[in-house]
Amino acid sequence: MHSFFRLLSVLPIGLLHFLGAVMGWVTFALSPTYRRRFVGNAKQAGYSFRQVRAAVGHAGRMVFEMPRIWLGSSLPHCTIVNGECVERVFAQGKGLVFLTPHIGCFELSVHAAAQRWAAQHGDITVLYRPARQAWLAKILETARNRPGVQAVPTTLAGVRQMIKTLRKGSAVGLLPDQVPPQGLGMWSPFFGREAYTMTLAARLALQTGATIITARCERKSWGRGFVLYFEELATPLSPTLEDAVHDINVAMEQTIRQCPAQYLWGYGRYKQPRVDPQMSPAAEKEQA
């Protein structure tokens, strides 16, 4: 499997996207559970299947482009739009929290941002959960640590590193629509339905005074590269944790609505949280 990943990492993005789109539709056709979740999540957000059917292929593209992002000798071409808002935050000497939902090539978002700003403002710190499969864990040990990116584990030590990063005026990156382990989130509306939502993103911003910037990295057609969009929150983050978590969910909804055809509607956003012994409720309290 490691050799297969290496092979994919040298193929052109256009070919990877073609293969991925085929795989996306095959998976959709063969998995009733995935198909029901995809259609149900899209309907919850107000979309018919016809409106978001392109997301079926984009889910497969996301899988096939990952080896290229992780192991490729260079990053695919990515145009940055509205990078000025990022530069304003750095110019103020404040920490920055990049937030992106499971949309487009979210793996490329942090690497493209690091390529642009890490040399001047320090590495971007991201959390990762070690893979259960030994072959994948070996790849991920180094894959996400490209120049300018520091990956830390989903432990209390990793969270402390993120706080330290923000306090020195550098940046961190998170996927706030990822369902956290039991005890590390709270129930908050997401497209009108209660979803277990991480509190970490809100806690980091409230505790350090860091600024939140949303990001979405859209794929261009025919393997022509990517476009990375940055935006500031429409309104300041609320001072209370519960309201701040809701503010972030609203921001993620708005980001998704800007490109619903590239969101992972098949992700189990409304699932029950699992128990993670590495990040207990006691660790969550210590974060604060």
Rank of each mutant, 00 (worst) to 15 (best):
M1W: 08
F4P: 03
F5E: 13
R6K: 11
V10G: 05
V10M: 05
L15C: 11
F18M: 08
L19V: 04
G24N: 01
G24K: 00
R36N: 06
R37Q: 13
F38M: 07
N41F: 05
F49M: 02
G60T: 13
M62G: 04
W70H: 05
S74F: 04
S74E: 14
S74T: 12
I80E: 13
I80N: 06
V86S: 04
E87M: 12
F90R: 07
Q92H: 13
L96A: 04
L99H: 07
P101K: 02
I103P: 06
G104C: 09
L108F: 05
H111Q: 11
H111I: 04
A114P: 01
Q115K: 12
Q115S: 14
R116A: 13
V126P: 06
W135L: 06
T142G: 13
P147E: 08
A151D: 10
T155K: 00
V159P: 00
T165Q: 12
L166E: 11
K168H: 13
G169Q: 04
G173M: 09
Q178N: 05
G183S: 09
L184E: 14
G185A: 11
S188V: 13
Y196W: 02
L200C: 04
L206C: 07
A210N: 05
I212Y: 06
I213M: 12
S221H: 08
G223T: 08
G225L: 02
L233Y: 14
L233Q: 12
L241C: 09
A244L: 02
V245Q: 06
N249S: 08
N249P: 01
Q254T: 11
Q254A: 15
T255V: 09
I256N: 03
R257M: 11
R257D: 14
C259D: 14
P260K: 02
Q262H: 10
L264C: 05
P273L: 10
R274T: 15
K285V: 10
Q287T: 15
